[in-house]
Amino acid sequence: MTVIFDGIASGMLLFLISVGLSVTLGLMNFVNLAHGAFAMFGGFVAVTLLNRAGIPFLAALPLAAIGTALLGVLFERTLYRRLYAATHLDQVLFSIGLVFMSIAGAHYLFGPQQQPLTLPGFLQGQINLPGLDMGVYRLFLIVLGLAIAFGLQKMVSGTRFGAQLRASVDNPRTARGMGINVDRIFTLTFALGTGLAGLGGALGVEMLGLDPGFPVKYIVYFLIVVAVGGSGNITGSLIAALILGVFDVAGKYYVPQAGAFVIYAVMVAMLIFRPQGLFGRKAAR
């Protein structure tokens, strides 16, 4: 039971980070491998605020998200925008370039070591039920993750912004003709995606650690979540992340020698049985 609970929590964390990628990749069709770099940025913002400026954890979280979103806007305006129409290869190369630069930058500013983070007292400790030990912080992650999934789903499918976004993606020219400010919509969406990455990065310091290698270390996890969940599909990402989290934690717990292989096995199995992703629509060809 505890293993499943921990798996869900870790899956929720994975969801929080990856959903931003799902948004940019699925809705804007941009392969942004630098997503992990934005998450790392959020982590560093949070750690710096916490350890150097003494700002409380709960305040540091939204600041990390906003800070990363602002960075995202800056990058979108100056660089990403030029590559919306480029091939996926170009987008991949470009974002790998950013990843390398971010890794080097993080090394330069923070050094190669893991960043320490102390959670506030009320998020530490455990709630013990018969057969189930729930870490308070993990419970916090689960609740927050669910809330964000719910909010995002509502926003994309139920608001004007969501409708405009979908219109802009389907056909930017028509959308422009209808008076939608496509550029602004894309900037906002990108900000949303990177903001979520920043939030996830800040939340993840405790469980995933934070060092300059972060953007590369977890990139495959993010890709699996998005590919398995069906890109742009929020519920899909959530379920994929939860499955991945549970399998990952369970694998590490029960067969520690196999370590990370469990998730690759999940990836392969998924490809064999559901090559379009769990919820992916079949590509029209």
Partner: peptide
Amino acid sequence: QFWLGLLLVLIV
């Protein structure tokens, strides 16, 4: 690594 990254970005 930084210059590599920058080079990639510039090439693209």
